[in-house]
């Protein structure tokens, strides 16, 4: 159970290195662009399908309970925006980003490139870890916004074309208040920090030959997915108690 302390150690070491060596802005932008563009296709396609899936379920159940699916439109928008879409988009991003970052960090570690970097008076935290963390914090909110918009549009589209419902009800943000927007922002920033952090932790712990890289990647993906689910629980509880 020393994962939390290791995560905290990596985070503090990165912050300390940023104080000492400054932030490499170019490297941060490169990581942001890479994390964003690499995950874009998976998140966008996945969320388009997810929006369609939800309408299938919603329509099949709404027929039994309320009759007309567009009655639930604005509540639907709120649930998608506030909870479901960020969670599923976050999981998809965690799968993509967690796998890529942990594989990369692990192969740097296993092939001794991190040690080589430090021999050349580089620093593994300010040169490798910190840009990935900041890249995640910058890229994840964009990914979640795009994923959420796509899932909402896709469910409105499917409601209109497959079930002939009133699509504008599904695009009605009437029930969204500032609390929902804060929840969305906090969640996306939290995921953006947690996913690269847990992936990098697993990558840096890799040891052994090529097999070690595979193990580290597996652990990186699982840990980043668990982080997303755990943060959902934590933020959900926090907002629940703040509201009541």
């Amino acid at each position: 159970m020393n994962a939390p302390s290791e995560l905290a150690a990596i985070l503090t070491a990165s912050i300390a290195s940023a104080r000492e060596n400054g932030i490499q802005l170019r490297e941060v932008l490169r990581e942001t662009a890479r994390i964003g563009t690499d995950s874009m296709l998976l998140v966008a396609a996945g969320m388009a399908f997810f929006g369609a899936v939800l309408i299938e379920h919603g329509a099949s159940q709404a027929r039994q309970v309320v009759g007309d699916i567009s009655l639930v439109g604005s509540a639907w928008f709120e649930i998608l925006f506030r909870d479901l879409a960020p969670t599923i988009a976050g999981l998809l991003a965690a799968v993509r980003v967690g796998a890529a970052l942990s594989a990369e960090a692990a192969s740097l570690q296993v092939t001794g490139q991190l040690d080589a970097l430090e021999l050349c008076s580089g620093d593994r935290f300010s040169d490798v870890v910190l840009p990935k963390l900041l890249g995640g914090v910058l890229a994840l909110p964009c990914l979640l916004i795009i994923g959420t918009v796509i899932s909402i549009v896709s469910s409105a589209f499917c409601a209109l074309f497959f079930y002939g419902a009133d699509a504008s009800a599904f695009l009605d943000p009437a029930l969204i208040d500032s609390g929902d927007i804060t929840a969305f922002a906090v969640k996306s920033l939290g995921f953006g920090l947690a996913i690269p952090l847990s992936a990098v932790r697993c990558g840096l712990k890799a040891e052994g030959g090529p097999g070690g890289v595979g193990d580290a990647t597996t652990r990186g993906v699982v840990d980043s997915c668990l982080c997303v689910l755990l943060l959902n629980v934590v933020f959900g509880l926090a907002f629940f108690f703040l509201k009541s």
């Binding site: 996945g46 967690g98 990369e104 030959g209 595979g214 580290a216 990647t217």
Partner: peptide, 20 residues
């Protein structure tokens, strides 16, 4: 070594895409 990491990473991504 890099190839095993990227094979594992691709497996995750492609199967997640297939799942959705």
């Amino acid at each position: 070594a890099r190839a095993i990491g990227s094979a594992a990473a691709r497996a995750v991504v492609e199967s997640a895409a297939a799942l959705t």
